[in-house]
């Protein structure tokens, strides 16, 4: 085999190996992410850590703290159960009256029961 061909093959294999390494690494690392669903729209955590979303009844204010905990700070719902839940991490928060779902990607688990 010519030297040039050998270098060519090694280069290709190296590029492939590096690409696959990062691809599988990104797949296997359980990235923590919170999705907020409101009126069939999906929202993510903004850099300001404060998200205002419109639901069936009006606007809900969702905030994150430095520990990645999320809470519903304000809600137009009558019973305020969602607000009383306080700050949570890894646990879904739901406001049924205003139609807000805060769904975290739960690391290492397929689902959570008892929320």
């Amino acid at each position: 085999m010519q030297k040039n061909n050998l270098i060519f093959i090694i280069t290709l294999l190296t590029i492939s190996a590096v690409a696959y390494y990062f691809h599988f690494k990104s797949q296997n690392s359980a990235q923590y992410e919170v999705r907020v669903l409101a009126l069939n729209k999906t929202f993510f955590r903004p850099s300001s850590n404060r998200l205002v979303v419109k639901g069936y009844l009006g606007e809900s204010v969702i905030t994150w703290n430095n520990n990645d905990e999320v809470r519903i700070e304000k809600s137009p719902c009558p019973n305020q159960n969602c607000v009383r839940m306080g700050s949570c991490k890894n646990i879904p928060l739901i406001c049924v009256p205003n139609g807000i779902i805060i769904n975290p990607t739960v690391q290492n688990f397929d689902a959570v029961t008892g929320q």
Partner: peptide
């Protein structure tokens, strides 16, 4: 299949 059971007191 791994399901987490929540402790609602301690979250």
């Amino acid at each position: 299949w791994t399901i987490a059971v929540l402790n609602p007191i301690e979250k």
